[in-house]
Amino acid sequence: MSAVPESYVGSSSTSPVTHHILSVLVENKAGVLARIAGLFARRGFNIYSLAVAPAEGHARFSRITIVVDAENTPLEQIVGQLDKLVNVVAISDLSPRDAVERELLLASVKVDELTRPAVLEAVANASASIVDVDAGAVTIMLAGTPAACDQFERRLEAFSDVELHRTGRVALSRLGRTNN
């Protein structure tokens, strides 16, 4: 715990105090996600977020990034059980201090003449960008650290009529730190 950077400590409900990021390489087969979700459900492991995409350069594999709560269940137990799933090929455990984590946030915000300047200011301050506009609303994108996304989400609470989606984080080992 002591070495976990400030930004990870108690920043919001989406960033658990003691979380680990598992980068899980799985076979791209029907039902794999159900097997993983089912395992977490039946063993009472908590998932904070989960993101899936085809793995780099492979049609056969996908990479699942799972943020898990390693406080209530020892990480060793989660990894050990996950590893027993036949379709799971490899698991890297990225502790937050050893990982680069990013997440994508999309938000549509209703704007009028009065609120528009404040919304644009929030976008500029967060280094977010506007990706869609019409007369009464803007759609904003922010790609950043989970903490930056948390902060921006809180900032947007000042406005009414916000629709917001976050992808859950993806992560890679920091360069120069080989985790496995």
Binding site: P74, E76, Q77, G80, Q81, D83, K84
Partner: peptide
Amino acid sequence: IDRAEFNK
């Protein structure tokens, strides 16, 4: 043979 049994 099952390492998930360790420390469970």
